[in-house]
Write a protein that binds this DNA or RNA. Structure first.
Length: 790
DNA sequence: GTAAGAAAAATTTTT
DNA sequence: TTTTTCTTAC
């Protein structure tokens, strides 16, 4: 019976295979011996090839357990698993090794943890934990936190780890040491060293360690490597262009035996070099596997010809790429619209209006719209304007569920219960809810722990051995806390994950604390806690718990530590407009895409203008953004935008000029039509207003008039706007410069008052004002908007 | 030791 | 403008 079923299933699938795939796709799917690389242009059915290929292997009788499929996000993995399940049956697909590098190898590391001196229940430090450790390390080393910015240090350490530079190799790498010296941060290596020690002491790995330690495992234990080499007969890697060196090497080692490796990717969509991804991995595949087969998927099934051609014209400006001809057989479609607005606010209204109009006139559902931006900070205005328009929306990837304070707190309780050495988890909740253990006490405990080279838990467990010099009163509070956690620990393997979690949520006092606060906010938090508990219940139920197979909390934590933001946020069929960063939009598609904030310094980001490589990455990001659209793209930019609370004038992004003007419909906003020659005059007087976009696009395009007319127009508007803003700013300055001590003024919030004194220099000028009803205040003039009365 | 309020800092992208 | 950190008063 079962056999028959499988047969029929297989027959169906094979006919599907034949029908659903084009020649290139089919060839890629059917090539199943030896290394192969699939270069898959945007919208060319990359996921389809991967899923069908895996289904095809399963169909041929390959054991699901011997197929390893690595993806870039959990979401991609889940979707693929789902689709394979639909093709070959979920029972069959269940045993595939499929997931992100991080999740797959964290699993393997739990099996092999003893070899590396970790326990199988090791904690995974998230970025916040890592930062916290680095912060305390900087303090402990008596380094100036001004010089050693936590973020910078962390990204330096992370870069090192991505490139498999351990502390020892860092210490002997003169180039790196010299670089740090040049930057006047010669102690980065010391921070790295102590940070590593701290993590190890806490039985914790950070995200990068998962990859580093896998490499160490495979390097130092050839027998273990061989075991997994034998185990994984087939290896498939999605988004290969986004792999970093550590990931590359893992794949290379694992594939060395069977050589059945298939990598899929698109060099044009490599957008993660900033965090260590190496586009060379895809470019160098041919060197690692000289006898590999190469498949190119060049037909885009997603977008109109206009969009595909426009995207091609952009990416052609990049120097490094694998040659390919992406084409579309869809309808030609409408040109890409480019709209200029005066302010970021106006941009918000424009987009909201446009979405509303299209949805009504073309009968388009809201879930076919996306607003894509470069930075999360840009989402706020669209949120506002959409809400005013009553358009339902969802912001993806902002503060994710797992980043919420109450969730992290509860998870910290779980973590400390599972791994008592987890100092970061402990520090997080030792005084939450308040139990009278203050900062000073915690510092003393931490000091004792670090001087004796033990975990904080160790100190708490044996205060006689590690004298803390604190009062008996406080010591007893600390003991109470320790006993509370111990009581949790003792039940860890007796209760299932859900019962345990519930027990901890109540026993810790968190639930009571949130209930008793009884504010709008605390109730929302309480709901989130409930939601987490529900998800644990789901997890337990889905794992098929039985008498002799208790699903305990540590199992749950393993799955959840690597589940960050975007993975859990599915647009579950809701009819809402999607708001997200371009990075988050990778792999998605929408009928209508609004690409907003196309301004110099924003997109491309100000921080990416150092080198040509960085600009090329931003350009690829722009390419990714455009190719999300099936039908239409509207690109907008504002000439004035609030940045750090200050209005700043902006010029249109150079990428706008990268698009072949054939595919563009440019509409300036009517308010900015200028009717005088001031701009020409200014340009004549000051030819340096030319910006590099002008030069870059001029030199790189042989096309004559249209380019120039568009460019001219944009640049004129730019200079005009700059002047306008300068005027406005002058006016504003003038306004506040009229203020003098003794004047009577009006303030929005505090009412009327008299200026006592004014101090400071321009952007940060402050006034001391005595208000009639609100008393004396110091106010920043740039925010206060004081009006002179009388 | 806590809470409120003021000052200062911060903005790329994410497993 | 929003978020985090520091001060100050209880």
């Amino acid at each position: 019976m079962n056999y028959l079923w499988r047969k029929i299933d297989g027959f169906n699938m094979k006919s599907k295979l034949l029908n659903d795939l084009n020649d290139a796709q089919r060839a890629a799917v059917e090539y199943d011996k030896g290394p192969s690389m699939v270069i898959a242009g945007a919208g060319s059915g990359k996921t389809r090839v991967l899923t069908y290929k895996i289904a095809y292997l399963l169909e041929k009788g390959i054991n699901a357990r011997s197929i390893l499929a690595l993806t870039f996000t959990n979401k991609a993995a889940n979707e693929m698993k789902e689709r394979i399940g639909q093709l070959v049956g979920h029972e069959h697909a269940k045993n595939l090794w499929m997931g992100t590098f991080h999740s797959v190898f964290s699993k393997i590391l739990r099996f092999e943890s003893q070899a590396l001196g970790y326990s199988s229940g090791y904690s995974i430090y998230d970025t916040a934990d890592s930062k916290s450790v680095i912060k305390s390390v900087i303090k402990e080393l008596n380094l100036n936190p001004e010089t050693y910015k936590v973020n910078e240090v962390l990204s330096r350490i992370s870069m090192a780890k991505n490139n498999l530079i351990t502390v020892n190799s860092y210490m002997s790498n003169t180039k790196l040491l010299e670089f740090d010296k040049q930057n006047r941060k010669p102690h980065i290596v010391d921070i790295y060293k102590l940070y590593t020690i701290r993590c190890k002491k806490a039985d914790a790995m950070d995200f990068d360690d998962l990859l580093v330690n896998t490499n160490i495992l495979f390097r130092n234990f050839p027998d273990i490597l061989e075991k997994y080499q034998n185990f994984f007969e087939y290896i498939l890697v999605d988004e290969y262009q986004d792999t970093n060196f550590a990931q590359y090497l893992i794949v290379k080692k694992l594939a060395a035996k069977h050589q059945n490796i298939c990598v899929v990717g698109d060099d044009a969509q490599s957008i993660y070099a900033f965090r260590g991804a190496r586009i060379e991995n895809i470019l160098n595949f041919k060197n690692d596997y000289p006898q590999h087969a190469l498949f190119k998927l060049e037909q885009n099934y997603r977008s109109t010809q206009t969009i595909v051609n426009a995207a091609n014209s952009i990416i052609a400006k990049n120097r490094f790429q694998i040659p390919k001809q992406i084409f579309s057989n869809q309808e030609p479609g409408n040109p890409i619209r480019i709209v200029e607005t005066a302010t970021d606010h106006e941009e918000g209204y424009l987009v909201a209006n446009e979405i509303f109009n299209i949805s009504v006139s073309q009968q388009v559902r809201y879930n076919q719209f996306a607003i894509l931006y470069r930075t999360n900070a840009q989402s706020r205005i669209f949120e506002e304007t959409l809400r005013k328009r009553n358009i339902p929306y969802k912001i993806f990837g902002a503060t994710s569920f797992y980043q919420r304070k109450e969730i992290k707190d509860l998870l910290a309780y779980f973590r400390i219960t599972i791994n008592c050495k987890d100092d970061e988890a402990l520090k997080r909740i030792i005084n939450y809810p308040s139990r009278g253990i203050g900062e000073a006490t915690i510092e003393k405990i931490e000091l004792a722990a670090s001087t004796h080279q033990v975990s904080i838990w160790e100190v708490l467990s044996d205060p006689a051995k590690y004298p803390l010099h604190i009062s008996n009163q406080i010591l007893s509070k600390v003991q109470q806390f320790k006993n509370l956690i111990s009581s949790f620990q003792s039940k860890l393997y007796e209760l299932n994950a859900y019962d345990m979690a519930l027990h901890i949520a109540n026993g810790s006092g968190m639930i009571n604390d949130l209930k008793s606060e009884n504010s709008f906010e605390s109730l929302a938090r309480l709901e989130n806690v409930e939601e987490l508990l529900n998800s644990i219940k789901d997890y337990v139920d889905n794992q098929g718990e039985s008498e002799n197979n208790l699903i305990t909390l540590d199992k749950y934590i393993e799955t959840v530590s690597l589940l960050t933001d975007t993975d859990t946020e599915k647009n579950d069929g809701q009819d809402v407009v999607s708001l997200m960063t371009v990075h988050a939009a990778k792999g998605l598609e929408f009928d209508y895409v609004f690409l907003v904030g196309l301004e110099e310094g924003l997109f491309p980001s100000m921080l990416s203008q150092q080198s040509n490589e960085e600009i090329e990455e931003e350009r690829r990001l722009f390419y990714v953004a455009l190719t999300r659209a099936r039908k239409e793209v509207l690109i907008s930019f504002a000439t004035r935008r609030y940045k750090w609370g200050k209005p700043t004038s902006c010029s249109p992004s150079r990428f706008i000029f990268d698009i072949d003007p054939k595919y563009v419909d440019y509409k300036g906003s009517p308010t900015d039509q200028n009717d005088n020659f001031d701009d020409e005059l200014q340009e004549y007087r000051n030819p340096t207003v030319k910006n590099d976009n002008y030069i870059a696009s001029e030199s790189s395009s042989k096309i004559d008039s249209p380019v120039h007319s568009v460019q001219r127009k944009l640049i004129d508007i730019k200079t005009a706007t700059r002047k306008k803003v300068e005027n406005q700013q002058n006016f504003q300055n003038h306004d506040s410069s009229l203020l003098r001590p003794g004047m009577r003024i009006q303030h929005q919030q505090f009412g009327q008052g008299t200026i006592l004194s004014i101090e400071g220099v321009e952007p940060n000028q402050k006034a001391t004002v005595v208000f009639d009803n609100a008393g004396e205040k110091k106010l920043l003039l740039k925010f206060a908007r004081l009006q002179i009365i009388e």
